[in-house]
Each structure stands twice: as C-alpha cells, then as structure tokens.
Design a protein around this nucleic acid. Structure first.
Length: 204
DNA sequence: TGCCAGGCCCTCTTTAGGGCCTT
C-alpha cells in the first residue's frame, strides 16, 4: 500500500536524449523517501544491446566494458517496477526521466500508477535567485553536503531526494506548512513564479 | 556532442523565437 507521504526519486542514465529516436536506458538509480528520510535504494546498470558512444562514456563514467556484463533492460525494468510500486515519483527535469520510464516500461508491458513531480520546476519557484537550476548547482545552493560523482544514477537520485527534502523544509520554514501533500508540490510547479508566495501563504 | 528531443518559460509574445534542463 502507498503511504501518502512516500515518494520514489529516480534518475536514468541513457544513451542520449530521446527514446523516440532510439535512445535507451543504461542505468537506473532511485531512492524511496518515507517520513522525510531515505529508507531504501535501487541501482542497476542495463545492457542496451548496443555500444554507447564516447560522449556518454565520458559524461557518465559508464563504459561499454561495464555494460557488457550488465543484465538487459527488460530484466532490470521488471525489478524496478516492483521497487516503485504505486508510489508517486520525483525526478530532476522529470519530463526527461518520464519519457524513458514510459518507453522502457512499454517494452516490457509494465505500468505504474504514481504521478510525477519535478524538482527542477519546483526549484525555479523556490530558489529564484540560484545561478541556474542544474542539479549540482542547486545542491551547492541549498548547502547539501556532496562528495560523490554527479551523472551516476544512484548519486543523482540521492542528491535530488535531498534537494527535494530541502525544498519541502524551505516551504515549511518560510510559510509554516509542515505537512505538504504531493499534490501541492504539483500545483506549485504549475504556478507562475511571481505568484508562489501568494499561493503558499493562502495554504498556510 | 549533435545535421539529432521535448517541455517549460521568458519576452523585443500569442500569426514566435530562443534559452534552460535532462543524457
């Protein structure tokens, strides 16, 4: 059963930007947040069935040699479907990860019932004076301790989860909202950045 | 990264163009 405040934060490493143009997932990382804490982790490399180009090897640190012995996407995605269950989902620039989750799940006839929220869209509302809204920049901006490798799926999902929790705490400390439903975060990401304060004050 | 995507969002806008994010 899904708990109302439980979310799964996920991140894909892929062969490129577009599953519609044949790109595939090569790594999935995810963490489960329950009661404001990370309580479980998931990380698997996936063999996409073909070689990845040097740019992706350099960008992610994932090499063709590492993928040679990895299990195929379909096996990993079936396992991942069990991990996410019916929980709601969070990702940094969620439209990107949603496209790959949808494409990889379609290949194995898996479905998920959770809804997506986007940490990047939320950060554009809450951290409007950040230099930019890349994950690494926001982690520094929010003063989240960081000593791992960005652009690996599990590390990025952990950093996104900590950023997500920091933003919920920001809402709590600035607007007195200690309990923030997932649906509120979704509504907030659809609110004009000029109306964020008014929106949150009306719900305090 | 790129001849290469897509959604969001701003503005010199809405009969559009371009930057930001993700790999």
């Amino acid at each position: 059963m899904s708990k109302a405040n439980t979310v799964v934060v996920l991140d894909f490493e892929t062969t490129g930007l577009s599953p519609a143009y044949g790109d595939r997932a090569i790594e999935i990382g995810a963490v489960r947040i329950e009661g404001g804490e990370i309580t479980d982790r998931f990380q698997k490399l996936m063999n996409p069935g073909r070689l990845i180009d040097p740019f992706i090897e350099n960008y992610t640190g994932i090499t063709n040699d590492m993928l040679k012995s990895a299990r195929p996407c379909k096996e990993v995605m079936s396992e991942f479907a069990y991990f996410i269950g019916d929980h709601n989902l969070v990702a940094h620039n969620a439209s990107f990860d949603k496209r790959f989750l949808d494409a990889e799940f379609k290949r194995v006839s898996k479905k998920y019932t959770g809804k997506f929220a986007c940490s990047m869209l939320l950060s554009r509302r809450l951290y409007q004076d950040a230099a930019n809204h890349k994950l690494a920049t926001l982690v520094r901006y929010a003063k989240i301790p960081s000593d791992g490798d960005f652009h690996r799926a599990l590390y990025d999902s952990e950093m996104t989860a900590k950023l997500w929790l920091a933003m919920l705490e920001h809402i709590n400390s600035h607007y007195g909202l200690s309990s923030i439903p997932f649906t509120l975060t979704q509504k907030l990401t659809k609110t004009s950045k000029h109306h964020v304060s008014k929106f949150l004050k009306s719900r305090a």
